[in-house]
């Protein structure tokens, strides 16, 4: 029995150990395979997603940065002007970076999160603006306030050329700007004003605040500005670029040009030679006729100005306040041929 028992137990033992090892091994192997597969899948999945593109990551980063900026805003010492400017600058940059971060993250955020984040951005921005207004009050109309300061400067500074004026500051530039218009006439009444070709050759000419005057410009300026004119007669040679008319009443304007831009003008007759198109804006009772003035040398001046004497689109007027196609604008008309002025020597005030 014993032998048998031994005989029996050995194989049994073997069998037991075999099964004890065998069964768990296959299970283990399968388990191992399963785990490996899961691991592999996870790795694949992880490699496909980027940590930065999770809303959790976004929310925590965004909030951390937001809090940091808020703290900077509330706790920084703004008593020293230079330091305060620097801090504000830094905050501005950080807010911009945060905005960029938000913009970059928009694609994977939900609508709600985007709205929330944008609201916080706005809050940050407005508290920064408040702070800036408080710490570094902005000169509201820098232009004028500085202008006042500029007038205290000694008079000669007005004669500086624009190049040197440019480094003095914007206000002075604009101030000087008007006086640098060496060319043109301003603030005159009941006068005959004449300029010759060499005075206006390729210059920016300004005629402003004239009443009851007769102006003749025998030459070709680069641009002609006509501003605040009443009851005047203005004749000019070929203008190589544009003529700018603003606030004109009861006047007669005569010139060739490349473009004519007319604004806020009423009851004015324009004898024009225009090689592109004329436009009117906020005008009433403007009447057009073809250019008829002539003076010795005007043909050469057409060449200098680069205008084609044979191309006159004086009837092509665009009214920017009348965009309806088909119906003509009520703001301008053509002067009937019988009413047109043909001789320019004895007309108007003198």
């Amino acid at each position: 029995m014993a032998a048998l028992g031994v005989e029996v137990t050995v194989p049994k033992d073997d069998g037991e150990t075999n099964t004890a090892v065998n069964v768990p091994e296959s299970v283990l192997r399968r388990d191992q395979a399963r785990l490996e597969e899961a691991e592999r899948r996870r790795n694949v999945k992880e490699s496909q997603t980027v940590k930065e593109e999770k809303s959790d990551f976004f929310t925590s980063t965004f909030n951390a940065e937001k809090t940091a900026v808020e703290e900077m805003l509330s706790s920084s010492n703004f008593s020293d002007r230079d330091k305060a400017a620097k801090t504000l600058e830094e905050i501005t940059v950080r807010i911009q970076q945060l905005q960029k971060f938000l913009n970059d993250s928009m694609l994977f955020l939900t609508q709600y999160e985007i709205r929330q984040a944008q609201a916080s951005m706005q809050k940050l921005q407005s508290s920064l603006d408040e702070k800036r207004d408080l710490v570094l009050p902005k000169k509201k109309f820098a232009f004028r306030s500085r202008n006042a300061g500029a007038t205290k400067q000694p008079e000669p500074s007005k004669q500086t050329t624009d190049k040197s004026a440019s480094d003095v500051g914007g206000t002075v530039v604009v101030d000087a700007a008007i006086s640098v218009y060496q060319c043109g006439f301003s603030n005159a009444e009941n006068q005959v004003l004449i300029m010759q070709a060499e005075e206006i050759q390729q210059k920016d000419v300004l005629l402003s605040h004239l009443t009851n005057c007769k102006v003749k410009l025998y030459g070709c300026p680069s641009t002609l500005h006509i501003k605040n004119i009443r009851s005047c007669e203005i004749l000019c040679g070929p203008v190589s670029s544009s003529v700018f008319v603003d606030q004109c009443t009861d006047s007669t304007l005569v010139f060739p040009c490349q473009q004519l831009r007319t604004h806020n003008t009423t009851a004015t007759q324009i004898y024009v030679h225009v090689t592109s198109r004329a436009i009117i804006e906020d005008c009433r009772e403007v009447r057009f006729a073809p250019f008829t003035w002539t003076y010795p040398g005007i043909h050469d001046h057409f060449k200098v100005a680069g205008l084609d004497p044979d191309r006159n689109n004086w009837t092509d007027v665009d009214d920017f306040n009348w965009l309806a196609a088909g119906t003509p604008s009520p703001n301008w008309t053509v002067i009937p041929e019988t009413e047109r002025i043909s001789s320019w020597d004895f007309v108007g005030p003198s």
Partner: peptide, 16 residues
């Protein structure tokens, strides 16, 4: 190119 034009630095200043 116009003789009376302001330099780019002046414009930068004026436009703030």
């Amino acid at each position: 190119d116009l003789p009376g034009s302001l330099s780019k630095d002046a414009i930068r200043e004026v436009l703030a």
